Simulated scan of single mutants.
Amino acid sequence: MTATVAASPVAAALADTAMAPLEAQGRLLNPVLKAATKKPGRVGFRGELALRFAPKLADEARPPELTCDQVIAIAEKGNSKLPFFAGYLLSFEHLKDVAEVLGEQLSAGGKYFLFCNNIDLLKKYQVAYNGAMFYVLPIDESTVYNELLELLYLEKSELKRLDTAGKTDAVADAALKFDVTFDNITYEEGLKLMGPVRNPNENRPV
């Protein structure tokens, strides 16, 4: 009789969701949340999404070369597509990496928000890529979470009493209803419009 290896609690929670392949590839990093939320059949993730891995040297684990940071996302049992994903990119050009990594987990009806550090602070765009539509928004000194609260008209004070899973549910539920339209541009047009990539360590105290 062959012994069966029990799945880890995280793997069990993400099983049969759009996050399972990402977890298997080792892309869901530094999680603040990677577990079931308060909604039945829903799992949430808050952390970093590895976009490009560094070459492996022997058994040495090296940090990824490129990540999408401050990710907030949900997935549902029995659904191979991500309904909602949001994250921070230092440069708009990495939208391509996000779209390619998420790949088959994207859907035409999903709500996907990318806050980019090198687009005009007064502009908001919609960019179709890989069969999905991305909302591309500016970000300066704030966080993805705070920017989403403002975009989705959620009161921070009302969410304070909730834990991380509850806050993720509240943001996701509001995001799934979001239907505002922005200027449609192509990825290639976005590359021409984006500004220089800022040094993320600039102006930080030593």
Rank of each mutant, 00 (worst) to 15 (best):
L151N: 05
R204Y: 03
M133A: 09
K167H: 08
E23G: 09
D97N: 15
K39R: 15
V32I: 13
A73R: 00
V71T: 00
A165P: 01
A35Y: 02
P200A: 04
P31K: 00
F92T: 06
G190L: 02
L191W: 12
K56H: 12
V5C: 10
T17F: 02
H94E: 14
G44C: 06
P138M: 10
Y112K: 07
E48V: 11
D179K: 14
L193M: 12
N199P: 07
F134Y: 02
D97T: 07
P40D: 02
Q25P: 10
P138T: 14
K167L: 02
G78N: 07
P138G: 03
S157Q: 15
L151W: 04
A132Y: 09
P31Q: 05
L191K: 15
L137V: 04
R27G: 02
A174Y: 10
M133S: 08
K111Q: 09
A24N: 03
E60S: 11
E141D: 04
A172Q: 08
V180T: 14
G166H: 11
N79R: 13
E60T: 13
G190E: 06
N118I: 05
N201C: 00
I185Q: 13
K81I: 14
T17L: 02
P9I: 03
E147V: 07
R204E: 01
L121P: 09
A61C: 06
P55L: 06
L22C: 08
V98A: 05
K156I: 11
K156W: 14
L66K: 14
D120R: 05
D169Y: 03
L162G: 12
L154E: 01
A36R: 13
F84A: 10
F85M: 09
A6W: 07
E189V: 10
Q105Y: 07
P40N: 05
Y112T: 07
L29G: 01
T143L: 01
A61E: 03
I139R: 07
T143Q: 06
L193N: 00
R52E: 15
E202G: 06
A175L: 10
L176D: 07
L137F: 03
V180Y: 11
A73S: 10
R161M: 13
K156T: 12
S142T: 08
G87M: 01
F84Q: 12
A3M: 13
G166F: 03
H94Y: 07
A15Q: 13
A54K: 12
L191T: 13
I72Y: 10
N146W: 14
V98D: 05
I119P: 00
T181C: 11
A50C: 10
F182W: 02
G131L: 08
K77P: 11
D140V: 08
Y153K: 15
K81E: 08
A86F: 02
E158K: 09
I119T: 01
L148N: 05
D16N: 15
A73C: 09
